[in-house]
């Protein structure tokens, strides 16, 4: 898996509309080429940050889907379906329309938005003995629809110059990146570690709340830690990349079909698989159109949905 990530990362850096050979890339990293030449600048300042961003976003969304599927014991769950991405999108769009700086304000608003949706979803089902999985999912679906309406409302208010920018962003866009923004992404690394540590309790949660508790798991603490951690990293990623769908649904599913439901394996594998997948999708999004590029969210869905159906069909037989 690590090899796959390395290969796709290298491809992502090497291939682009300006064209440069694999050899150039190696030369740039070994410092053998003039650092001010156009190739070097493109590779160092445009493609490299972009590949890193794609890797981080892909890993986060795949893990986010994995965690939510485990918590809700529902293979359809992912941050989008629960409205958590939608909530952070509302926050981020408000920030963009107000013309705030991406960091820290838009990021902060996105996080606030996702936490607000999470809090609302949880409040909907509060007062029950525990987190009821169907109620949580239903609450999320409603929040998602509500956020969608607010996003449309905000778009209808915004000036024509902003509309294209926001729409592109909504479809999932990795083109707005530079080295500085990548440092913000370092915030998600501790989240990965937390999720990895909680992989074994997640296995037990799949056996049901009672069974997990009877085997010594503090279900309430584990569940809320995972919910907050995941919402945080998803909101960090959403305001960097917009709404990129399907990774959270497809990647965990594919690997669960291949290596089984043990989260101690699934967490690292989804992390690597998610990042490779998005790097390659982004590569296609840059290369396929004759002019310019298309939002990567279109590619992830176009590849993800049929692949998912195929795997489902194969597993049934």
């Amino acid at each position: 898996m690590a090899i796959l990530l390395a290969v796709s990362g290298f491809l992502g850096i090497s291939v682009g509309s300006a064209g440069s050979s694999f050899g150039d890339v190696i030369d740039v990293f070994r410092g053998r080429i003039n650092m001010d030449s156009p190739e070097a600048v493109i590779i160092r300042q445009i493609r490299f940050p972009r590949v890193v961003l794609a890797a981080a976003v892909g890993a986060t969304l795949a893990l986010g889907g994995l965690v939510f599927q485990a918590l809700l014991r529902n293979p359809l769950a992912e941050p989008y379906i629960l409205g958590i991405s939608g909530g952070s999108a509302v926050g981020a769009i408000m920030g963009m329309m107000a013309g705030l700086a991406l960091f820290p304000w838009v990021s902060f608003l996105a996080f606030a938005g996702s936490m607000a949706t999470l809090a609302l979803v949880l409040a909907l089902i509060a007062g029950r003995a525990s987190l009821n999985k169907d109620a949580l999912l239903l609450g999320g679906v409603m929040m998602n629809a509500f956020c969608g309406a607010i996003i449309m409302f905000l778009i209808s208010l915004s000036q024509s110059g902003q509309v294209q920018h926001i729409l592109f962003w909504l479809m999932g866009d990795l083109s707005l990146v530079d080295m500085e923004r990548l440092f913000i992404l370092a915030l998600i690394l501790p989240c990965f570690i937390i999720i990895f540590v909680l992989a074994r309790p997640m296995n037990l949660l799949l056996m049901g709340r009672d069974a997990a508790m009877a085997m010594g798991i503090n279900v309430r603490v584990v569940t809320s830690t995972l919910l907050i951690t995941t919402s945080f990293m998803v909101s960090v990623v959403v305001c960097q990349s917009g709404l990129i769908g399907f990774i959270g649904l497809v990647i965990p599913h594919i690997f669960r079909l291949i290596i089984g439901p043990d989260h101690r394996l699934l967490v690292p594998v989804c992390l690597l698989g998610g990042s490779s997948y998005l790097i390659l999708c982004d590569l296609l999004a840059r290369v396929l159109p004759a002019h310019g590029e298309m939002p990567v969210g279109i590619i992830t869905a176009l590849i993800g949905a049929p692949l998912f159906i195929f795997l489902l069909w194969r597993a049934k037989r």
Binding site: R73, P75, P261
Partner: peptide, 16 residues
């Protein structure tokens, strides 16, 4: 504790 019903949403193997 051996519960009345077993949750089978994610099929682990017997050994796991």
């Amino acid at each position: 504790y051996v519960p009345q019903q077993m949750v089978l949403d994610f099929p682990f193997t017997v050994a796991e």
